[in-house]
Simulated scan of single mutants.
Amino acid sequence: MNFLSLKSLAVGAVALLAVNTASAEVLRVGMECTYAPFNYRTADGELTGYDVDVAKGVAEIIGADLEFVCQQWDGMIPALLANKFDLIVASMSITDARMEKIDFSSPYRDSVGRLIGKVDGDLNLFDDNGDPISANFDGLRVGLERASTYENWFNAKLPGAEIVLYDGSEPLYLDLKNGRVDLIMTNPMKAQLRFLDKEDGSGFAFASPAISEVEYFGVGVGIGLRQGQDELRDRLSAAIRELINNGSMTEYALKIFPFPIHNPEWGTM
């Protein structure tokens, strides 16, 4: 092979690489970036957490590059619909109400909620079957994150409670500690690590069993995307199944929690 042939091959290889690079799929991912331990920034500004690991794991399997976009929770779905990003990977529960507006991949994390209050509150909020005693919530101030499944559950189940809404989860803990609300409801995995295990959480404890009514909390947490993108949805779901079945999803959880936070049966969905 002469010099010109080698040169032609080299130029062709560079051109092919340029084409492949230019045509690589780029997916913009919306998340709060403040929802530790699921998606948040470290002290040096690095975006990390369980949702971030899932997004990166899925992207590696489907061969996509990611661009992360930080978005407040109550504007997450409107921003997706306005094409501000392509996917929501933000611990968003799959519910019928949300599926009227957007589509979801198969689930990758459990979706539950628990109440937190003072240890000596003695409020007698739930009966022996774990059902809420509606009358005992009347007049209680309960802090909830705006546009959350917790807000929907309270509105339907406990209308006598006085709901106080917050933009983001961090103000919940501050106002509970300062006595501005009597209770908060949030993700128990997050609350244990972020609040109850810390000095700030001294004197507080879970005030309810884990609540996971599918009608309000959905079947789990999934990746949100715009409707009509069935091929992308199916690729995302297949990647999630692979991450479950190859053990990666368990590894992501064990970096933070002492147990997996997904249903193994989702690997066969």
Rank of each mutant, 00 (worst) to 15 (best):
G121V: 03
I88E: 07
K118V: 01
A79L: 09
A82Y: 06
S93R: 12
G49V: 10
I116W: 00
A64F: 00
I77L: 10
I116Y: 01
V89P: 00
A82R: 09
F68T: 02
W73K: 10
A90S: 15
I94L: 06
V58D: 04
P78N: 03
L80I: 07
L87M: 01
S91V: 12
S106Y: 09
A90V: 14
F85E: 02
M76P: 00
G113K: 06
F85M: 03
A97K: 13
C70R: 07
G121N: 13
I61D: 04
G113W: 13
D65G: 02
M92R: 14
E60P: 05
S93A: 15
L66H: 10
I116G: 01
S111E: 11
L87V: 05
I62C: 08
E67Y: 02
F85T: 02
R109L: 15
K118F: 02
D103S: 15
S91T: 12
R109A: 09
G75N: 07
F68I: 02
W73R: 15
V119E: 14
Q71N: 15
P78F: 00
D74M: 05
M92D: 06
V58K: 03
V112D: 15
D74S: 14
F68Y: 01
V52R: 11
K56M: 10
Y50T: 13
D96S: 09
I94D: 03
G57Q: 00
D65Y: 08
L87I: 09
L66Y: 06
I62R: 08
M92C: 06
A59F: 07
A59V: 05
K56N: 11
M76V: 02
I88C: 05
I62G: 03
V52I: 13
I88M: 11
I77N: 04
V119D: 09
V89K: 08
L115W: 01
F68R: 00
I77H: 09
G113I: 11
G75L: 06
K101G: 01
M76K: 08
A82N: 15
K84Y: 07
R114I: 12
D74K: 04
R98L: 02
T95N: 08
P107I: 12
M76Y: 06
G75S: 12
G49H: 00
S93T: 08
A79Y: 00
G121E: 14
M76C: 12
A64E: 04
V112S: 13
Y50N: 06
L80S: 01
K84N: 13
R114S: 15
V54D: 01
D65T: 10
V54H: 01
I116F: 03
T95L: 05
A59Y: 03
E67K: 14
G75M: 06
S105A: 15
P107A: 05
S111Q: 13
T48S: 09
M76H: 08
L66F: 05
